[in-house]
Nucleic acid binder design. Structure first.
Lengths: 138, 138
DNA sequence: CCTTGAACCTCTAGTGACTAGAGCAACTAG
DNA sequence: CTAGTTGCTCTAGTCACTAGAGGTTCAAGG
């Protein structure tokens, strides 16, 4: 049995965030001491670890709720869990693709402007003003 | 002279977003008709284009404010603009690196679970529950 | 000139996933 | 027993919008 602070240290999830998860229904309301303080056990620590891991992987609170729901009903869960993970994977890949495009444009912009300009026109500002200078689209 | 709707069509920025930018001080308050409707000119269209482009590149409203500020004071602007762009670039690179790590873990998880399981344990759920199965850290 | 319907106006509130702060109560180490 | 840390609830703030209510103005067709 440990306090919310201890749980926080064990999992790396901040105290107010744990309370937030409880409010959102991701974590069940735990036991309380006589003095109304939360007390957690091993099962809760594991659950919070699951949530933390999924959040780190970019799953939304909603998606995590669905995954937990599936976990509690192990029949037909695997296919749906796979679907959620696949969706997550595709959205991560989209983000990577778009950030990679941005990276190439930003580095082009950054290189163009040496920072101590002979130029009376700043390349950074000009590039941002004029989309036509982009080599990629977005 | 065009309306907010026309400006929206020209730039691809939604109407409520244009009003929001005005409220935030990114766009100046434009002229109005007698009936109190906004009317924009070429300069405003260009400015909004600048803002749109910078937002698409992930610059925050605050950073864009700073860039516009620099644009209005062309002395010593280039170095500072470069700095803002470089900061932006490094944060984009960090995001790419972390998403790439997530991608490899997610695809590993997805591959592990065929979706129509012989397994009585779902690999997706198990992987999320057990961080120790990760090959990368996060 | 008049009507109709789209586009416009302001204002408030909601989104997601927290984070910060106020003001108070309870636990724990010395 | 007391001091200091940790806990409690509640409200409000963050960012960059987005949605909706309830009302006004504009432009085109008749």
């Amino acid at each position: 049995m440990f306090s919310i602070g201890a749980l926080s240290r064990h999992t790396g999830v901040k105290v107010p965030t744990i309370r937030y998860y409880e409010q959102m229904g991701l974590m069940c309301a735990p036991e309380r001491t006589e003095g109304n303080q939360r007390r957690y056990g091993r099962a809760e620590r594991e659950r919070l670890g699951f949530i933390k891991h999924a959040r780190d992987l970019g799953f939304s609170i909603e998606a995590i709720s669905a995954l937990i729901e599936l976990n509690d009903h192990p029949d037909r869960s695997c296919a749906e869990a796979s679907e959620i993970a696949a969706y997550q994977l595709s959205s991560v890949r989209k983000k990577i693709a778009s950030l990679t495009r941005l990276e190439s444009e930003l580095s082009r912009i950054s290189d163009g402007c040496s920072g101590n300009g002979i130029a009376d026109e700043c390349y950074v500002l000009a590039s941002l003003a004029d989309h036509a200078r982009c080599e990629t689209d977005h």
